[in-house]
C-alpha cells in the first residue's frame, strides 16, 4: 500500500533519483539536476546487475544469442519488467514470454521455450528440498487407484514444446564435449523437420536439476497426474499404449525423486 499521495511522490527526491536512473533519454539526464557522472554509474550498475542476473538464470539463452543482441534484450526487458522483489534471483519469470514478443524471438522461435526451460531449471535449483514419503507407497496396495493421487516433488515440471529443447540444452551444458556435439546435431536435425513435438521434464534427484525427454505415453500419464487426475484415470489415458509400463515408470519415478507423497482422496 502506498501511503504517499501522487503529488507528494512527484516532489520526493528518491522518486526523482529513480527517474533519473531509469529514464535514460539524454534530455532527462541534462534536466535531472543530479551529477551526470554519478547517474551514469548508477545506470551502468543497474544494467550490469540485470545482465549478470539473466546470464545466470538463462544460461542457454545467452549461449544462443550474440552478446550484442542479448545486451539489448536485457535493456528492453529491464524497462518492460522492472524488478520488484529485491532479489535478482527471482527476477525473470516472464523473460520467456518477453522473448516470444521480440523480433529475434520470432526469427528463432525456440528461444522462448529455451528460456522457459532455463527458468524451470533455475527455480528447481533453489526449490524446496523434498523426498518421497515412502510410507505412503503402501497406499498402492491398500487403496483403490480411483481414490489415489500423486503429489509430485515441487521441482518437477513437465511441458510440451514444438522444439528439441532437451537436445539444445545438452548441446550447451553437457559435461562431455562429444555429447554436446551430438546433441547439437540432433537438435539441428529436429529443427529441420516440418513438425516436431517433445515432452520435456525437469526434475531434481538431489541438488542438481536435470532435464529429460519423456516418451509420448509417459508424458501423457504424467501430465494427467499433474493435472490432478486420479491414478486410475491417469492409467486409463495410456491403457492402449503397449510401451507404457507402470512398474517401470514407478521404478524410475522413485529413482528420480519425482514423487513427494501418495495421497488418498
Amino acid at each position: 500500500m502506498n501511503d504517499l499521495s501522487n503529488n507528494e511522490i512527484a516532489k520526493n527526491e528518491q522518486h526523482l533519483l529513480l527517474e533519473a536512473i531509469w529514464n535514460d533519454e539524454s534530455s532527462a539526464l541534462a534536466q535531472c539536476g543530479f551529477n551526470t557522472q554519478g547517474i551514469n554509474i548508477y545506470r551502468r550498475n543497474l544494467l550490469a546487475n540485470a545482465q549478470r542476473a539473466l546470464n545466470i538464470s538463462f544460461p542457454t539463452v545467452f549461449e544462443l544469442l550474440d552478446s550484442d543482441i542479448s545486451e539489448s534484450l536485457v535493456y528492453q526487458f529491464l524497462r518492460l519488467s522492472p524488478p520488484n522483489l529485491g532479489d535478482w534471483t527471482q527476477w525473470g519469470g516472464n523473460f520467456s514470454r518477453f522473448l516470444s514478443t521480440t523480433e529475434v524471438g520470432a526469427d528463432y522461435p525456440y528461444l522462448a521455450d529455451c528460456a522457459a526451460l532455463d527458468w524451470h531449471m533455475h527455480c528447481a535449483l533453489h526449490g524446496i528440498d523434498q523426498t518421497l514419503a515412502s510410507s505412503t507407497l503402501q497406499l498402492f496396495s491398500e487403496s483403490e487407484p480411483e481414490q489415489l493421487f500423486i503429489a509430485f516433488n515441487q521441482n518437477v515440471k513437465v511441458f510440451k514444446t514444438a522444439y528439441p529443447l532437451t537436445e539444445i540444452f545438452q548441446a550447451h551444458h553437457h559435461s562431455n564435449e562429444l555429447k554436446r556435439e551430438a546433441a547439437m546435431n540432433d537438435a539441428k536435425k529436429a529443427l529441420s523437420r516440418d513438425s516436431f513435438e517433445q515432452i520435456v521434464m525437469v526434475y531434481r534427484p538431489e541438488f542438481q536439476p536435470k532435464v529429460t525427454t519423456l516418451s509420448a505415453s509417459e508424458g501423457k500419464f504424467m501430465l494427467a497426474l499433474l493435472a490432478g487426475k486420479s491414478l486410475s484415470q491417469s492409467l486409463d489415458t495410456v491403457k492402449c499404449d503397449n510401451e507404457f509400463s507402470f512398474e517401470q515408470w514407478l521404478f524410475t519415478a522413485i529413482e528420480r525423486n519425482l514423487i513427494n507423497i501418495i495421497k488418498e482422496k
Binding site: 502506498n2 511522490i9 533519483l17 550498475n45 543497474l46 546487475n49 524488478p83 535478482w88
Partner: peptide, 14 residues
Amino acid sequence: GQQQGQLIHSGDLL
C-alpha cells in the same frame, strides 16, 4: 520506489 504507479526495486544501494 515507484515508476508509473508500479512498485520497483532499484537493484542498487541508492
